[in-house]
Design a protein around this nucleic acid. Sequence first.
DNA 1: ATGGTTGATCGTCAA
Length: 256
Amino acid sequence: MKIATWNVNSVRVRWSQVGDWLAQQRPDVLCLQELKCEASQFPWEAFQKLGYSALVAGQKAYNGVALLSREPGIDEEVGLGDFADPQQRVIAATFQGIRVVSVYCPNGDSLGSDKYQYKLTWFDALQRYVQRALERYPRLVMAGDYNIAPHDQDIHDPKAWAGEVLCSPPEREKFEALLSLGLRDCFRQVKPWESEAFSWWHYRINAFKRNLGLRIDHVLASEGLIEGLQDCQIDKVPRGWERPSDHAPVMATFDL
DNA sequence: ATGGTTGATCGTCAA
């Protein structure tokens, strides 16, 4: 089973690229983030033509998450349950007995900002959500844009980035807390020592060509699934396409 | 040099 994630930065701009990538890679489930549109504007037909069903949590202009899948999902749930959030950042459903969650975690803007505080509070709600979800769904994959580079290894220039948003100690503690619930970072599980492996590059300063990036998009899997993990790859190719998303897709392959 | 890019929406906000 292949489960992938991609922050597409507007699904209305990127639907054709997503379609091309789906046709090439044929993941069983693709978690999308930053749709930047309402469900009524979602390009359902483009994915339907490729044999993919969609579950969509959209909103006007910002955020928005979805699950594309070869087989329809069941038991769809939108949001974090006990945390009322007007921003659409979480959608979950079950595929072939695997609970899959697509997450778009807050960016945080800068340390000390209101958005940074919201990010930390939001991660506390995500922590409670995952704790509950694992009780009900021990076979769980949560994939998306976490907006956190977990270790210095995940940053092109750790000294320049030290203490900045996306890698500040409080953010990293929130990420580690999620792992402490029994989730593993699939990429690090497969490639513990690989450096210079990034999933996001700024549009400015020729960041992609110079590989000035961060690894902030992650596929996390519950412990029961890890023994079946075969591979996890960041596909940099779509980031080099014309008018790309600033994020690359990440895909984990499980032998289940 | 407080610059630089992209997207939603149409004056800024968000990333």
